[in-house]
């Protein structure tokens, strides 16, 4: 597909992309397998941290070699994802606790959440 791409770059990119996709898949398998919502919250974090991280590192290496200059704007996605996932997950867990409390199921330990 691309002439002049060193072999080690091709192999490294391939392994990183595969690893990233496998980790994301495992995250969604956890999403399907776990029984309760609070256990499921943990599963997709695999995809958002190492899963996407591996693909982004592969992309950085591949395009840097391909265009023979440092290409690292993928770091932006990494920053956005790591800063934003805590917010969404925190909001979701809080919302779930609220809804469960309204439904009469209380998961809380001895201390109230807010």
């Amino acid at each position: 597909m691309t002439p002049g791409l060193p072999d080690w770059v091709a192999v490294l990119t391939a392994i990183l992309v595969l690893l990233g996709s496998i980790l994301t898949l495992i995250g969604t398998i956890g999403l399907l397998r776990f029984k309760s919502f609070y256990a499921r919250v943990h599963a997709p974090t695999i995809g958002t941290t190492l899963g996407i991280g591996c693909v982004l590192i592969a992309s950085i290496i591949y395009f840097s070699v391909l265009q023979s200059r440092p290409v690292f704007h993928e770091v932006l996605i990494m920053i956005f994802v790591t800063v934003t996932t805590p917010i969404t997950l925190m909001l979701l867990v809080k919302a779930a606790l609220h809804r469960d409390k309204d439904a009469g199921k209380d998961h809380m330990p001895s201390h109230p959440a807010d």
Partner: peptide, 21 residues
């Protein structure tokens, strides 16, 4: 060779991402 390995890995990775979706 390494190029075809990359080609196949990318295709497989796409399949895995679609499965995850």
């Amino acid at each position: 060779n390494a190029q075809t390995f990359l080609l196949w890995s990318l295709a497989l990775a796409e399949l895995l991402f679609v499965m995850a979706m």
